[in-house]
Each structure stands twice: as structure tokens, then as C-alpha cells.
């Protein structure tokens, strides 16, 4: 397959990747855009480490092709610098090795966009598709609860 130039926005900036359009999105983001916050573990959409937002909706970037984001807005964890979620995760120690953290943060961002006041059960249910093998999930859920409260608070 000859390379093509696929244009989209990445973390708010115009991006263009010239590559085989059938490359997996996660691979393309890491290799061509240096988006190392996109982690690949299972490569079958099961673990959630590669979660990005595509036009605001969560997606497993290991199970998408590069061509599928043509003209879309792609967001990775790099977008969350100094975001209440990032700060809450740090405060709660909601990571150990950190491999899964980017995926959790992006999924949590999608949840709070959809539901700014989720209950603890709703957070657990929404995040249950992502896997963490060291921290345990309680601190992650607590961090999301705290970030949600911070984001609801008047500026």
C-alpha cells in the first residue's frame, strides 16, 4: 500500500502523517508523532492502555486504522497537562508503574464530559474496561471523584 498523507488534529494542533493508511492508529501516533503517552499492551482493544479520544469519544487506538482519523480531532494524555484529572491522579497516587495511566485519564475525561457528576458506581462501571495491574482501582476512582468535584466548582 503506498503511503498517504492523513491529516487530523492531535491534541489541538494540526497534524499530518505520511504512512500506510492501514497502520494501527496507536502505532502511527507513537512512531510518527512521538505520542509516547499512547501505550500499547494487548493490541486487541481489551486493556485500555491505548485509549485516546476521537472527536471527544473514547477509542482503543490499537484497534483503529490511521485512515479512520482523517479530519478528526484526536486527543492523547498529553492534552491533560495541568488538568484537574492529572492533578487528582498525582495527589491520590493513582498509578504505580504508570503504563495504564494515560488510558485511564483519557477514559475518565470522556466520562466527565458525558456525565460531570458521576456516582462512585458509575465511575467504576465506566472505567471497568481498563486494566491496571499494580495500583488497584480504589485510588483511581477516588481521583476521578475528586477531579469531577474540582471541575464542577465555580472558577
Amino acid at each position: 500500500m503506498p503511503p498517504e498523507t492523513i491529516r487530523f488534529t492531535l491534541d489541538g494542533r494540526a497534524a499530518a502523517i505520511t504512512a500506510e493508511p492501514t497502520e494501527p492508529l496507536a502505532h502511527a501516533l507513537r512512531e510518527h508523532c512521538g505520542a509516547q503517552g499512547v501505550r500499547v499492551a494487548c493490541s486487541r482493544a481489551v486493556c485500555g492502555a491505548c485509549t485516546v479520544l476521537v472527536d471527544g469519544l473514547p477509542a482503543a487506538s490499537c484497534a483503529m486504522f490511521l485512515w479512520q482519523v482523517e479530519g478528526c480531532a484526536v486527543e492523547t494524555v498529553a492534552r491533560l497537562k495541568a488538568h484537574p484529572l492529572q492533578e487528582a491522579f498525582a495527589r491520590h497516587g493513582a498509578f504505580q508503574c504508570g503504563y495504564c495511566t494515560g488510558g485511564f485519564l483519557m477514559l475518565a475525561k470522556a466520562l466527565l464530559a458525558e456525565n460531570p457528576s458521576p456516582s462512585r458506581a458509575e465511575i467504576a462501571e465506566y472505567l471497568s474496561s481498563n486494566i491496571c495491574r499494580c495500583t488497584g482501582y480504589s485510588v483511581i476512582i477516588e481521583a476521578v471523584e475528586e477531579a469531577a468535584a474540582a471541575m464542577r466548582a465555580p472558577a
Binding site: 500500500m1 497502520e23 507513537r30 500499547v40 493490541s43 485512515w67
Partner: peptide
């Protein structure tokens, strides 16, 4: 081989 498992396939849109 989990990083790029896509086969070299042609694409028809």
C-alpha cells in the same frame, strides 16, 4: 508483535 500487527493490506474506500 503487539506494536504493529496490521498486515500489509491494500485499502479500498
Amino acid at each position: 508483535t503487539t506494536v504493529n500487527t496490521a498486515p500489509r493490506a491494500a485499502l479500498c474506500r
